[in-house]
Design a protein around this nucleic acid. Structure first.
Lengths: 167, 167
DNA sequence: ATAAACTTTCAATAATTATTGAAAGTTTAA
DNA sequence: TTAAACTTTCAATAATTATTGAAAGTTTAT
């Protein structure tokens, strides 16, 4: 496997994994491309390399910036805008975890709390609803807590602490 | 908010969260419905309650069984098949984590390993590709490890150990 | 102020994914 | 063995989501 094959394989695999962390294919591929690039890339570069349209590139780069994963780079003397992604994987994981919590987990926690707080009319079905949504609420909240703790952990949480913790 | 409103709210919220754990809306809604039901439900029951077709119900119930989240229940004297879901949230989380690892994370780890093992021709771009895919490989593997450790943890890992661990 | 260089927007279209429903398949009871 | 009760399959269709491309918008240099 040569460089170009390996690059393609990486970009497309990472792209299809996008769903796992809740972003679309093009977005994930752009990020992947930037991730292994040795220098900032212009919109032109990205379009050419991934063979996607200007509009698509523009929109997805914007989304990546909204996520805080990609930043614009100003190159002196250049008119075009250039882009780079966070290169540190730990930091990348941190940002993604935090954003997903904010965008998806928090709203669910809110609903679970609401639902589990309905008044108990004493019927079996109501009791079950309350009981089970409470359990989910607790689980979700604890998992989310965990994500946040990870996310604010300054140093290297994953490589250092996890195996030890897991006994 | 009365029982029916609460139930609907729960089912649809949980359904739309489906994507977060990688399953589709109908599948997640069926699971949600079973999760708060006090007794096993037939296909008929599910169809009626969620207003989805017989075919859809059948297919999604099957998928849930493939995941190991839902099981058939034989009710003596009844011709229909009845279904229940795992009611323990910890166990549910365990199963889902394990399945997602197997279905999605493992294949990616494999590709990352392949890509990060290409021969280093000394060029900067090849070095960057190797370096970054290696870093991702390590991160993904460690995260996956964590998931597995959680998944095989017999007792209550999340509520007991996490906060302490996270210092 | 003008125009070239570049980016964004968004309606149209394409691609993907989910859903239906009816025919085919299976199981059970008699 | 037959037929009723039930489930599965799958081609057709609907719904959703991603992508394009060209017009509109912005910025910069002169």
């Amino acid at each position: 496997m040569n460089y170009d094959e390996a690059k393609m394989k990486f970009v497309s695999t990472w792209g299809s994994l996008g769903t796992l962390w809740g972003i679309n294919k093009a977005m994930a591929q752009i990020q992947a491309l930037l991730f292994i690039s040795t220098k900032p890339l212009s919109m032109e570069d990205v379009m050419e390399d991934l063979k996607i349209s200007r509009g698509n590139t523009s929109m997805n780069l914007r989304q990546l910036m909204d996520w805080g994963i990609v930043t614009k780079e100003i190159i002196p003397g250049e008119r075009k805008e250039y882009f780079t992604t966070e290169k540190n994987v730990q930091e990348l994981a941190r940002i993604i975890a935090k954003e997903r919590s904010r965008r998806e987990i928090q709203p669910v926690i809110k609903v679970l709390k609401e639902v589990s707080s309905i008044t108990d009319d004493g019927t079996e079905k109501t009791r079950e609803l309350i009981k089970q949504t409470k359990a989910l609420h607790d689980l979700t909240e604890t998992a989310d807590d965990m994500i946040h703790k990870m996310a604010t952990q300054k140093q290297n949480w994953i490589t250092k602490s996890v195996l030890k913790f897991m006994k």
